[in-house]
Amino acid sequence: MTMTIRILLLLAVTVCIAAAQRLVSQRCLCRKVRDKNFGGIKSVEDVQIFPPSQSCTRLEIIVSLKNGVQYCLDPKMKIVQNLLTRLMYKPAPPTVPSPTEVP
């Protein structure tokens, strides 16, 4: 083999290894999303939102219901968008002032 062929072969192997490592690093929490109604906003206990990152390029929304069930939701669903809007504009709970020390 000539030196040029060896260099091209080494370059091709390097590119294949880099591409394979990139595909393996996709570690999303949600393997599939629920695209149907999940029980309504009143049944939601907790919502976790994971923005796209180096480990997963998708926006992931995981909802925990009051009965303990968790679902991954499709962020494109209208009901999910309504849920997120409601949560973002939900008024903060009133804070109770701490008692002041009296001498």
Rank of each mutant, 00 (worst) to 15 (best):
T85R: 03
D46C: 06
L83E: 03
L83M: 06
K32R: 14
V63R: 02
S64P: 00
S55Q: 06
R86T: 01
V24R: 08
G68Q: 00
P94G: 06
Q21Y: 08
S43P: 02
L84P: 07
V33N: 09
L29A: 11
C56F: 03
C72V: 02
S64G: 01
R86D: 07
L11M: 11
T85K: 04
L29T: 04
V44K: 02
V63E: 04
A12W: 13
L23C: 06
K90P: 01
T4M: 14
I79N: 12
S25V: 14
I61W: 03
I41H: 06
P94K: 13
S64Q: 03
K76A: 14
D35L: 14
C72F: 04
L73A: 07
Q70A: 07
G39H: 08
V69D: 10
Q48P: 00
K66A: 06
M3P: 01
C72I: 01
P91T: 10
V33R: 13
N82R: 00
M1L: 11
T95E: 14
G39I: 00
V96K: 11
L87W: 05
L8K: 05
M88Y: 03
A19N: 09
I62S: 07
K32D: 11
P99T: 03
A20S: 15
K42I: 01
T14Q: 15
I17N: 07
L10I: 13
R22K: 12
M88D: 08
L87V: 06
I41F: 07
F50H: 11
M88E: 12
P103K: 09
G40A: 05
V63M: 04
G68D: 00
E101D: 03
P103W: 08
M88R: 14
K42S: 05
L84T: 06
K90Q: 13
L10T: 10
L65A: 06
G68V: 01
P51H: 08
I49V: 10
L10Q: 10
M88H: 11
L11A: 15
C30S: 08
L84N: 05
R6Q: 05
S64W: 01
K76S: 13
A18V: 12
I79Q: 07
Q81G: 04
Q81T: 07
S25A: 15
G40E: 04
M1R: 11
P51E: 13
F50K: 13
C30E: 07
L83W: 00
Q54C: 03
I62G: 01
V80H: 02
I79V: 03
I61D: 10
V47Y: 03
R22M: 11
C16P: 01
T85C: 00
R6L: 03
D46L: 10
S43Q: 15
P99H: 04
K76P: 01
L73K: 14
A18P: 10
L11C: 14
Q54K: 10
V13I: 15
Q81W: 04
S55V: 03
V24F: 03
K78Y: 08
A92E: 06
T57R: 14
E101I: 08
N82K: 02
T95S: 10
L73W: 13
M88Q: 10
Q54S: 09
C28P: 11
Q81D: 08
N82G: 00
L23N: 09
A92R: 06
L65R: 15
V102W: 10
G68L: 01
E45G: 02
A18D: 12
V33E: 13
P93D: 08
I17H: 10
K90S: 14
S25M: 15
T100R: 14
R27C: 05
A18Y: 13
R58F: 11
R31M: 05
